[in-house]
Design a protein around this nucleic acid. Structure first.
Lengths: 219, 219
DNA sequence: TCGAGCTGCCTTACATCGTAAGGTAGTGAC
DNA sequence: GTCACTACCTTACGATGTAAGGCAGCTCGA
């Protein structure tokens, strides 16, 4: 009755590359809550436990995913551009990667990023910032504060206070207009189509404010 | 053998108030991953299922916690202060509440906030911002962009890329200095003691930049 | 006084989760 | 031939959220 006389090679062998690609795809499709080792195994045509041959635990897999996302932040904008343009371009890429990984970004934002690639990417960004700032201190603080903005922006557009899960039913429009007039007045500019402009306005305001109050040696 | 002849009233009866207080305390003490309905029950001296008498599901409990945190954002700074000072004071309180709820903030930042109290708080902030801006559009965009900064700052100081969990062992100092020189140079200003100043510098830079490029009618 | 209904909490059970422990089939070396 | 090794699977365990139903004590109308 053996219809597969030899070893069943019905699928390509597993590999970290394939596992991580499938994991990211699954997370971005189903959301973080919809992810599990068993579902990932099913996706890949193997048992959940087979994945433990490649990663000691799910946490290690997740760290590998962080590493993989961080890889997209390694290449720096061309040095021919003015410094501020380079920094701006990096921030825009940050947002694009976040939007491309909506399911995973919530995880990334709430977990430590100390994999080798993530550290290299962070090091690269700090070095870039250092070029246009007057001291190590200013570079450190600008990196941090700019990071706050970028982290919050990515989160908001993927899983934040307006898009994340909730058990509460959405408030009907009529009640909304009556009880929350300020929210209602602002709502048109909360639409997804308005988000890119808001992101850029905030980014430029932040850079203007930070660099304007200082000597801006790098501009 | 019954040592408790009548009904055992060895603890006060359950209540939403008590459940939510215990839940927040547990989450802030053990972290989000260390929280479960059974552990919360144990903390309160009841079974996990007893909690379902007060909340249809754990998600509803979590939404109640969001509502409870949002309550702390309802009172607005005194109207006697200049507009910008009021906005600034609100942002500082935002950070304080985040720091007071380190375990829960990671949840709050990645979930929808549409409970009644949260909506009222958001409405209040937008109304405050509207006072000092020239249009509904500007108020909406400033609220959003400022929210990015605040969300990222709270996250970073409670669960973010430098404090969250990870399976990767911390990089030794020697290797750090050799492979990540920019991070090493910046490290002194990444220390917890430096964070408040960084937060305020970023906040003021952002407000300067946003308001400076415009008419600043409210200042 | 008596039950009927209600409130508050508990018991049991189930599907799903991460993963520890160990097995097994195929492959290459000698 | 057999030995070691790689790649993957099987089984099992404890923990989780929660559906379904039970049960004891209170309140209230008759």
């Amino acid at each position: 009755m053996q219809d597969a006389p030899k070893k069943r090679r019905k699928r390509p062998p597993l590999s970290p590359e394939g596992i991580e690609t499938a994991a990211l795809a699954l997370i971005n499709r189903e959301g973080l809550a919809g992810f599990s080792m068993r579902k990932l195994g099913a996706e890949l045509g193997c048992e959940a436990m087979s994945l433990y041959h490649y990663y000691p635990s799910m946490g290690h897999l997740m760290d590998a995913l962080i590493d993989r996302i961080a890889r997209q932040y390694l290449p720096m904008p061309p040095a021919s551009l003015p410094w501020r343009e380079r920094l701006r371009a990096f921030c825009i890429r940050w947002r694009a990667v976040a939007l491309a990984n909506p399911g995973f970004f919530g995880f990334l934002a709430t977990h430590r990023m100390n994999t080798p690639t993530a550290l290299r990417a962070i090091d690269g960004v700090i070095a870039l910032i250092r070029e246009g700032t007057a001291s190590d201190e200013e570079a450190a603080r600008l990196f941090r504060a700019l990071g706050y903005y970028l982290m919050g922006a990515g989160l908001d557009e993927t899983a934040g206070y307006s898009r994340g899960p909730s058990t509460v039913a959405p408030v009907p429009a009529a009640e909304m207009a009556r009880d929350y007039p300020a929210v209602t007045a602002a709502a048109p500019w909360f639409a997804p189509a308005a988000r890119e402009a808001t992101f850029l306005m905030g980014l430029d305001a932040f850079l203007d404010g930070w660099l304007g109050a200082r000597g801006q040696p790098g501009v």
